[in-house]
Simulated scan of single mutants.
Amino acid sequence: MERSSGDYYVFPGATAHALRRYRAFLEPSGRRPLYPQDAHCSCRGCSLDDVRHARDVLEEVLQRLPSRSRAELKRRVARLDAGYLERTLPDPFAERRQWRADLWWRRRLTVGGEST
């Protein structure tokens, strides 16, 4: 699926890279909130430094996978999503700040704001 994708951000290995990035973001133990940060570069490799973009890539992949593969990936992502919701805080101004505020993972407080 990654090889045949026409999406610039879905390239061979992108799914594994996005999963590793999502897991790494949630790794620090403790109860302190975590804050996603903007990537310093928008190229397809560096853009995954922003955990929200990594989640965007996973969502794109989930939309394109066949049902059996989708179900397996969805289980993995759901566990990470639960941790993300638990460790991040809601952004009450996300509608004004986020370019994709329709995506729940982008409606969380960040370090380094995005402008519309």
Rank of each mutant, 00 (worst) to 15 (best):
Y84P: 00
R3K: 11
E114G: 00
V61E: 04
E59M: 00
L58A: 07
A18L: 06
G13W: 06
T116P: 02
F11I: 04
G112P: 11
G45E: 14
R96F: 15
R79E: 15
L65C: 07
L48K: 03
V77K: 12
A101K: 08
T116V: 15
D7R: 10
Y9V: 02
T116M: 10
T15C: 09
R20K: 05
A16E: 15
L58R: 08
D7S: 11
R108L: 04
R70L: 02
A14I: 03
R97M: 12
P33N: 07
S69W: 03
H53R: 05
D56R: 11
C41E: 10
E27Y: 00
Y9A: 12
R106E: 13
D38L: 14
R97Y: 10
Y8W: 09
F25H: 10
H40F: 04
G113K: 10
A18Y: 06
Y22M: 09
D38I: 13
R32D: 08
E114S: 10
P90T: 12
L65E: 14
P28L: 04
G112Y: 07
V61T: 13
S42K: 14
S67V: 13
W99C: 01
P90G: 05
R96K: 15
P12C: 05
W99P: 15
C41P: 00
L26T: 08
S69C: 05
R106C: 14
R21V: 14
S5D: 02
S42Q: 04
G83F: 00
Y22G: 03
D7Y: 01
R79Y: 01
V77Q: 07
S42L: 08
T15S: 03
H17N: 07
A54W: 00
P36M: 09
R20H: 06
L26D: 09
Y84T: 08
P12D: 08
L103E: 13
D91F: 04
A82Y: 06
A14K: 05
P33I: 02
A101E: 08
R100N: 11
P12F: 12
P66W: 02
